[in-house]
């Protein structure tokens, strides 16, 4: 995400992935929202990414970051899925889904809000570009969407 000189902030989407956790992605990375999609469960897939959906003739893997965070299969998501776009390791455009607890919200993120991830957010270091403090004082990781949908979480 790039800011302008007077630090008026850059547009981002805030995604609530768990009742207590918000993450941010770039404005142009979120391209669609699906409400209660038809999931196809993939046997033996990791709990945090066990479903795919059909969207615009694409097979889209769907991440449950709440499952990943808690290492627990049953999580409290609403059925809203954010469809995001990213580049894979070969530079091809791919689509991924992220399960949300509530619809996404737009926000402006300023340089002055930048902060370090604390030890509570250790897991996020694998997939975040940076982080900032929200107006309510919560730490919000900024997600590297390409990394999130790579093999990184499997290792």
């Amino acid at each position: 995400m790039k800011t302008d000189n007077n630090d008026s902030g850059v547009a981002a989407w805030l995604l609530q992935v768990d009742r207590l956790v918000n993450v941010a992605i770039g404005q142009f990375e979120l391209i669609h929202i699906i409400d209660e999609p038809d999931y196809m469960g993939i046997p033996q897939a990791p709990d945090y990414c066990k479903d795919v959906v059909l969207w615009n003739n694409n097979i889209v893997p769907v991440m449950s970051l709440a499952s990943w965070l808690t290492s627990c299969l049953q999580v409290d998501n609403t059925g809203v899925v954010a469809i995001v776009v990213y580049e894979d390791e070969q530079g091809k455009h791919k689509f991924g889904g992220i399960k949300l607890s509530s619809p996404p919200v737009q926000a402006k993120v300023k340089n002055s809000q930048q902060c370090q991830l604390t030890d509570d957010f250790d897991k996020w270091r694998k997939v975040s570009l940076s982080s900032f403090k929200s107006k309510t004082g919560d730490i919000v990781p900024i997600i590297d969407v390409s990394k999130l949908f790579s093999h990184v979480l499997l290792s």
Binding site: I42, A45, C49, V52, I59, P61, L148, S150, L154
Partner: peptide, 20 residues
């Protein structure tokens, strides 16, 4: 035919492909 998505391919999935 589509390869299994990289982010879920833990080598335990008993599928060769997904398909449309």
């Amino acid at each position: 035919f589509h390869n299994l998505p990289v982010c879920m391919n833990n080598k335990r999935i008993p599928l060769t492909h997904l398909c449309l």
